[in-house]
Design a protein around this nucleic acid. Structure first.
Length: 582
RNA sequence: GCCCUCGUAGCUCAGUGGAUAGAGCGUUGGUCUCCGAAGCCAUGUGCGCAGGUUCGAUUCCUGCCGAGGGCGCCA
């Protein structure tokens, strides 16, 4: 159980008693807010509950706060004070603090705190890059954020499914096949690649590996002799059909390699083509029609998305009878509903924001969201600007060393990439500073956090402890936390917040708060480490019991840093080695 | 034209409607006989403008100004 949850229960009880005594009704489902005090000198936690209740109770906040304090079970508190306009400040005593430490390790504590989560079945879709070329930097950002958020959701106790939607159907896939065909033809004959084809050199590279590893059927196989008497258009059509699925497979394989190198995992890669093959796409169109949400205009079937706040109605079946991408996406999201997910979250690229209204409208039209707890949320991953020496890096072909996710991974360590990508809210533009990313000094925050972790392991090595095994936390630890040792107290209460932060992020998806927290933890630890009274090496001789307790504090810090970094897909090294400057 | 994101310290940015708005970088000055100096300590006249909602607004709403991005019977 987290301390915040514990206090919230006590305040809820007290507010209920206060309401009964005053003969007023608490608002339906009232849950008092429990915040952190702006400074530990005010106490450890604070609640503005009395201010929130002022209107309902028709009393001044301070008067309500007094009633709540009077009704509060205060066994866990050293003091409970009324402050400011009506804040209730809580200072825990050692019994209270020990509540959180009853689990002896961070893992056990997190596990026990899962019960505070309203467990949900969540599907998270992210990256979903088109299988027509290498992934770009925004995909890397989405991968990093999606992966980290889902790790947090799991830790908080949710049932999470991570999915990648593969657009392996339609025009662009045919165009991909045609691009391969042209590149193949170019090996024997000078032809110009049409503008509609994929221009990237990577097509030729993939073609070569395909030619080396796959049996090419006679109808497609070319030779110098055959090219002279070729019916070019017929051959191109045939060859495009042949290369199309192979090209998708090859490119998807490369994408998966990059994702693995980036330590991002998916539970499933969902094929769009599989929906078309099953007839699920046209079937969902029929379902919308049955529900009266389709009109026919110039021979095309049009979804009435304006009924759901869209700018205009959207074509879902073209006048020639072929479904649009939107209809396939509706069918895809319908499978998410059918698979029993209550919370559906998508991370999309910046070019898709206009798409939210029509898809969420379609889900509403199909009845999703009518039941309690059902929600559909889209997070837009905004663009990434690469910066070098304070100047934007132009991503032109000529200058662009950093056009793709792979370029990025090859140049910048994954630990650094992943840290940088999660330091800003996904929905805001991100300047990615390559100069700072390559900097191994203190300027680079990820190394600062890792350094603090490594330093703790160094302390354990020096003290003759096995650093690989976390120390079991005992009641000796809270006894350290006294006002005479502000560094210990600041560090300790920061550590107490970690499980609370996990729950917050699981609720609001604001992953950027985690790297910020870890940096803060590293700073507080380093201050503690330099504190005159905290020299474990000396205390081991003079005050072995206190040294043991301090080692527990260090161990808990290391567990928090390691677990936090792991949630971000970043390693927690036990020793740091700086690469020599060349 | 419509939509999205952003405007906080010299710079890059934090800040689930609450108490004295915080970090890093940069600047300047201290600091290693001592568990790792990738460190620590000190150093600041800042919420774009105008309304509104609220007991309370940097936070929510509206308008304006400024910056970036996006708006297909492509996927």
């Amino acid at each position: 159980m987290t301390l915040r949850f514990f206090i919230r229960q006590l305040v809820t009880d007290a507010a209920r008693k206060a309401a009964a005594a005053l003969n007023v009704q608490l608002p339906e489902g009232f849950i008092p807010r429990i915040d952190y005090t702006p400074d530990l000198k005010f106490g450890h936690y604070a609640s503005p509950a009395a201010m929130e209740l002022a209107k309902v109770f028709k009393l001044p906040p301070r008067a309500i706060a007094e009633k709540i304090i009077a009704a509060l079970d205060n066994a866990a508190f050293e003091k409970v004070e009324l402050a400011g306009a009506g804040f209730i400040n809580f200072t825990l005593n050692q019994n209270g603090i020990a509540k959180a430490l009853a689990f002896h390790s961070l893992d056990a504590w997190l596990k026990a705190s899962e019960s505070e989560t309203q467990k949900d079945k969540i599907i998270f879709e992210y990256v979903s890059a088109n299988p027509t070329g290498p992934m770009n930097i925004v995909s890397a950002r989405a991968a990093s954020v999606g992966d980290s958020i889902t790790r947090v959701l799991k830790t908080a106790g949710h049932d999470v499914h991570r999915e990648y939607y593969v657009n392996d159907y339609g025009n662009q896939v045919e165009m991909l096949g045609l691009s391969f065909a042209y590149r193949y033809l170019q090996k024997f004959k000078s032809v110009t690649l049409p503008e509609t084809c994929y221009q990237g050199e990577y097509i030729s590279d993939y073609l070569e590996s395909l030619l080396a590893s796959v049996e090419i059927p006679a109808a497609v196989k070319l030779s110098a002799d055959k090219v002279t008497k070729l019916n070019q258009n017929d051959w191109l059509a045939e060859a495009a059909r042949f290369f199309s699925p192979l090209g998708v497979k090859a490119i998807l394989g490369e994408q998966q390699k990059d994702l693995a190198a980036f330590r991002t995992e998916f539970d499933n890669f969902f094929s769009e083509a599989s929906l078309h093959e099953k007839g699920a796409v046209l079937a969902i169109g029929a379902e919308l029609k049955k529900r009266g949400k389709i009109k026919v205009e110039e021979g095309a079937e049009v979804f009435l998305s304006t009924e759901y706040g869209d700018d205009k109605d959207r074509v879902v079946v073209r006048s020639d009878g072929r479904p649009t991408y939107l209809l396939a996406d509706i069918a895809y999201h319908n499978t998410k509903v059918a698979r029993g997910f209550k919370t559906i979250v998508d991370i999309w690229g910046p070019d898709h924001h206009g798409y939210i209204a029509r898809l969420s409208g379609a889900l509403k039209a199909l009845g999703f969201g009518e039941q309690a707890g059902e929600s559909f949320k889209v997070i837009i991953a905004q663009q990434v600007n690469l910066m070098e020496n304070g100047e934007p890096v132009v991503m032109s072909k000529r200058l662009g060393k950093f056009q793709t996710m792979r370029d990025l991974i090859e140049k910048i360590p994954v630990d650094v990439c992943r840290y940088f990508f999660v330091t800003r809210a996904l929905s805001t533009h991100l300047d990615f500073d390559l100069t700072l990313a390559l900097d191994q000094s203190k300027k680079n925050p990820v190394y600062y956090v890792q350094y603090a972790h490594a330093r703790i392991h160094s302390i354990f090595r020096e003290a003759g402890y096995d650093a690989a095994k976390p120390l079991s936390l005992t009641e000796a630890l809270p006894s350290l936390i006294t006002a005479e040792n502000p560094e210990r107290m600041a560090l300790f209460f920061n550590l107490m917040r970690f499980p609370e932060l996990v729950h917050d992020i699981a609720r609001n998806y604001e992953i950027q708060r985690l790297p910020e927290y870890l940096y803060q933890t590293a700073t507080l630890f380093t201050s503690f480490y330099h504190g005159k009274n905290n020299r474990i090496k000396d205390l081991l001789v003079s005050q072995p019991a206190e040294a043991e307790a301090l080692l527990q504090l260090c161990s808990l810090t290391a567990q928090v840093l390691e677990t936090g970094l792991k949630l971000l897909g970043i390693t927690a090294p036990q020793e740091m080695h700086r690469e020599e400057e060349v």
